[in-house]
């Protein structure tokens, strides 16, 4: 079943895209991730230009994160004040990111830069996840309960000026690391088309020491709004959001996510996490091969208009 994508301006097999979205959705549901960092490279492997893949990925992140955010909001598990400040930083980061995205696109470096960002982040996340899950598996085999690390009492972030009291999180910290974290995640959202939860959550726990009961909700709050803002900015500055492609991915991934959530309850989490880590590393290796191997065709044509990057 072929479908013409009006912005990407190519015809793709709808079942392939749907299957891909569903597969990522299953993983997303299993592990409670957005899946943006898997969808974008998979779209690139399927012939969608990186510019369209990233902007459309940002749109998909909104759908993947919004229901979680609503659920956490209802349970009052969102620190609105902290989330708002992260969001302010995130919007600034996304703005800068979209601007740089446009410059890179005009200069012809965008594809390589997006792929490099993915290589770096996927290798780091994949390796950390693999190490973590192997450790947990080994501990369980030795019959010990996996220990959960506790954040330290002080961090370098405490010594920075401009401290503000965040009531819901019971924190009294400088706004500088909060804005910086928001900015970094917003920037990545614009360049990579990801939500950035994989950076936001650990940074909130270990750097800002936000209580764990509000971490996920606040992170989702920031992700939904930053991804939405990024989508609109990409639509305005680059015209690369393909809503038909996004709709296919969104329907597939939200359905897949349900299957994933069900499956996660019956499967061993550690081994699954090790598998996901291997998958992430495999995607990263595939991207490295793309970047370092001698290209079959050294030349490419770009016509800068809408999504028409060939």
């Amino acid at each position: 079943m072929d479908i013409y994508l009006p912005i990407a301006e190519i015809t793709v097999n709808a079942l392939t895209i749907f299957g891909m979205g569903a597969a990522v959705g299953v993983l997303a549901g299993m592990f409670g991730i957005g899946g943006g960092f898997l969808i974008t490279p998979l779209l690139i492997f399927n012939g969608i230009t990186p510019a369209v893949a990233v902007a459309t990925g940002a749109n998909q992140v909104v759908a993947a994160s919004v229901s979680g955010m609503i659920a956490h909001w209802r349970r009052d598990a969102v620190d609105r004040q902290l989330g708002g400040m992260l969001l302010a930083g995130g919007m600034a980061g996304a703005l800068v990111g979209v601007f740089i995205f446009r410059l890179l696109r005009e200069a012809g470096y965008l594809d390589a830069v997006i792929e490099l960002f993915y290589v770096v982040f996927l290798s780091i996340i994949g390796s950390l996840m693999l190490i973590e899950s192997i450790k947990t598996i080994l501990k369980r085999r030795r019959g010990r309960a996996p220990s959960t690390r506790r954040p330290g009492q002080h961090s370098w972030a405490d010594r920075l000026p401009g401290r503000v009291r965040f009531k819901r999180s019971k924190l009294y910290i400088s706004v500088i690391p909060v804005l910086a974290l928001g900015f970094a995640v917003g920037f990545l959202a614009a360049i990579m088309g990801v939500g950035g939860g994989f950076i936001m959550v650990p940074a909130m726990i270990y750097l800002l020491r936000v209580p764990t009961n509000v971490v996920i909700g606040t992170s989702l709050f920031q992700i939904v709004f930053v991804a939405a803002f990024t989508t609109v900015m990409h639509a305005i500055a680059n015209g690369t959001v393909d809503v038909v492609l996004a709709a296919l991915l969104m329907v597939a991934s939200v359905l897949g996510a349900q299957v994933g959530v069900q499956a996660a309850q019956r499967l061993k989490a550690d081994e699954l996490r090790a598998l996901l880590a291997l998958l992430v590393l495999a995607v990263s290796v595939r991207l490295v091969i793309r970047l370092v191997s001698v290209p079959e065709e050294a030349f490419s044509i770009t016509a800068l208009a809408g999504g028409l990057v060939a």
Partner: peptide, 20 residues
């Protein structure tokens, strides 16, 4: 483009909300 972007977001929110 602004309207288009906003409509894309609205679709995403709607789908995400229904899934929720």
């Amino acid at each position: 483009p602004l309207f288009y972007g906003a409509a894309s977001i609205a679709l995403a929110v709607l789908l995400g909300w229904i899934a929720g």
